[in-house]
Simulated assay, not measured.
Amino acid sequence: MIISDINIVHLVNFDFLASCQRTPTISYISQEQIKDIGSTVDLECSVQYGLDYPVAWLRVDDAGISGALPISSGTTLIVPNNRFSITFDRQSSTYRLQIRDIQETDAGVYYCKILLSLVDEVAASVDLLVRRSPIIAANSTSSLVVSEGEDIQLECYAFGYPYPRISWRRENNAILSTGASIFRGNFLNISNVQKEDRGTYYCVAENGVGKGSRRNIAVEVEFKPVITVPRPRLGQALQYDMDLECHIVAYPPPAIVWIKDGVTISNNQHYSISIFATADEYTDTTLRVITIEKRQFGQYTCKATNRLGSAEAQVELFDIKLL
């Protein structure tokens, strides 16, 4: 009977020593968590054979290990933030890290670590993903000035979670270079740009969180002047006034002159020139012929010039005989 008791004691001691010599392990860690801003998350880490070792939570952001943020050691919170709390359930040997009122900056990889020595540890991780509405990145195209005939590429990038979808539209749902009113993708290519391609383009980023984000991209197309004359021939009697008109489309805005018989006309007692810029690319000009004299009948030339070229059009003023 005494021998039997001694054997039992030896067996108990052996089991105790064996359990003390087992390497601590992490038997469970929470799966990936996807949360909304303002919500609460519980991250759990269950440890086996680790009661005599320090257990820590820390977060690693996009900067990698250099951006590691220690959060807790055992049941002591290191981060001075009342949104964080740490508890330990002895029955299940589980360390529970709770984060309340989740912020965008809380997203990252959270590590549960058992520190075995200064150079050895056991670790497991869980990703915390925070749903964020899209924000269009600063390196997206903001505006563009090109010359007619060039090939261009508009770029749009956005970040958020889930990863945003990018689509393109034009002002007033005008047709894009792709032949449709909507195009999806980070890049919108326009080949052989024409003046009709100028205007406002919209980069829209959406991911189902919030209202999405939009950037307006102004595309200015430089082109040489195009002139239209609403009334190429005008009749008027002597001693009356008459207005000659030209409409010009050009970008950059052109220099405009009126010419008669090879001589550039200037404002004086016989002529008055008016120039009205109705938009960046639209200009109207009027030449008023004052108290018409016989020598003022004839052909007038309206000429517009910018750095891409020039154009001209003629307006004829003829005499109407009064009875």
Results as ranks from 00 to 15, higher is better:
Asp52Thr: 15
Arg170Val: 12
Gly185Pro: 01
Tyr163Ala: 10
Trp57Lys: 04
Glu171Gln: 08
Thr76Pro: 02
Val60Met: 14
Arg90Thr: 10
Ser93Ala: 15
Val209Lys: 00
Ile182Tyr: 09
Asp127Gly: 09
Phe183Val: 01
Ile71Phe: 07
Tyr251Leu: 05
Ile6Pro: 05
Tyr110Met: 10
Tyr271Leu: 05
Val79Met: 11
Val122Pro: 03
Lys35Met: 09
Val109Trp: 10
Ile29Met: 09
Lys294Glu: 15
Asp106Arg: 08
Ala279Phe: 00
Glu293Thr: 13
Val219Met: 00
Lys35Gly: 02
Tyr240Phe: 15
Ile256Lys: 00
Gly108Asn: 02
Leu323Ser: 15
Lys321Gly: 15
Pro252Tyr: 01
Arg215Asn: 07
Ser30Met: 07
Cys112Arg: 04
Gln314Phe: 11
Arg231Phe: 13
Phe297Trp: 03
Arg184Lys: 10
Gln314Ala: 11
Gln239Glu: 15
Ile265His: 01
Cys246Arg: 03
Val263Leu: 08
Ala205Glu: 03
Ser140Trp: 07
Asp241Pro: 11
His10Glu: 14
Ser27Ala: 12
Pro24Trp: 03
Phe318Ser: 09
Tyr28Asn: 04
Ser191Pro: 08
Pro252Thr: 06
Ile26Ser: 07
Asn82Glu: 12
Gln153Leu: 10
Asp61Lys: 09
Asp36Lys: 13
Asp284Lys: 05
Val249Glu: 12
Ser191Lys: 14
Arg214Gln: 14
Arg132Cys: 07
His10Pro: 06
Ile136Val: 01
Arg215Ala: 07
Ile256Tyr: 00
Ala304Val: 02
Ser117Gln: 06
Glu148Phe: 06
Val119Asp: 14
Phe14Cys: 11
Cys112Ala: 04
His247Asn: 13
Gly160Met: 02
Tyr282His: 11
Cys156Phe: 03
Ala107Lys: 11
Val221Asp: 02
Ile26Gly: 07
Glu245Pro: 07
Phe183Pro: 05
Cys45Asn: 04
Arg288Trp: 06
Gln239Trp: 14
Phe223Ser: 03
Gln296Trp: 01
Ile71Lys: 03
Gly38Asp: 10
Ile217Ser: 05
Ala123Trp: 09
Gln48Ser: 15
Asp89Phe: 05
Lys321Phe: 15
Thr141Asp: 06
Ala124Asp: 13
Arg214His: 05
Ile166Gln: 02
Ser147Trp: 06
Ala138Arg: 13
Gly64Gln: 11
Arg198Pro: 00
Asn189Cys: 08
Glu196His: 09
Asp280Gln: 12
Asn189Pro: 07
Val130Thr: 02
Arg288Cys: 05
Lys260Leu: 04
Leu308Thr: 03
Ile65Cys: 09
Ala205Asp: 03
Leu188Thr: 05
Glu121Val: 07
Ser46Lys: 04
Thr23Gly: 06
Val209Ser: 00
Asp62Ser: 15
Leu11Ile: 11
Lys211Glu: 14
Ser213Pro: 06
Asn82Gln: 12
Lys260Thr: 03
Pro24Glu: 03
Ile166Asp: 00
Arg198Lys: 08
Lys35Ile: 13
Val315Ile: 15
Leu118Asn: 15
Gly262Asp: 08
Val226Pro: 01
Ile114Pro: 03
Gly74Ile: 00
Tyr271Ala: 00
Ile26Tyr: 06
Val146Cys: 08
Gln239Thr: 15
Pro70Cys: 09
Ser93Ile: 09
Thr278Pro: 02
Thr283Lys: 01
Arg170Asn: 12
Gly64Trp: 11
Asn173Leu: 08
Thr87Asp: 08
Asn139Glu: 14
Arg165Val: 08
Tyr95Ser: 02
Ala124Arg: 15
Ser181Ala: 12
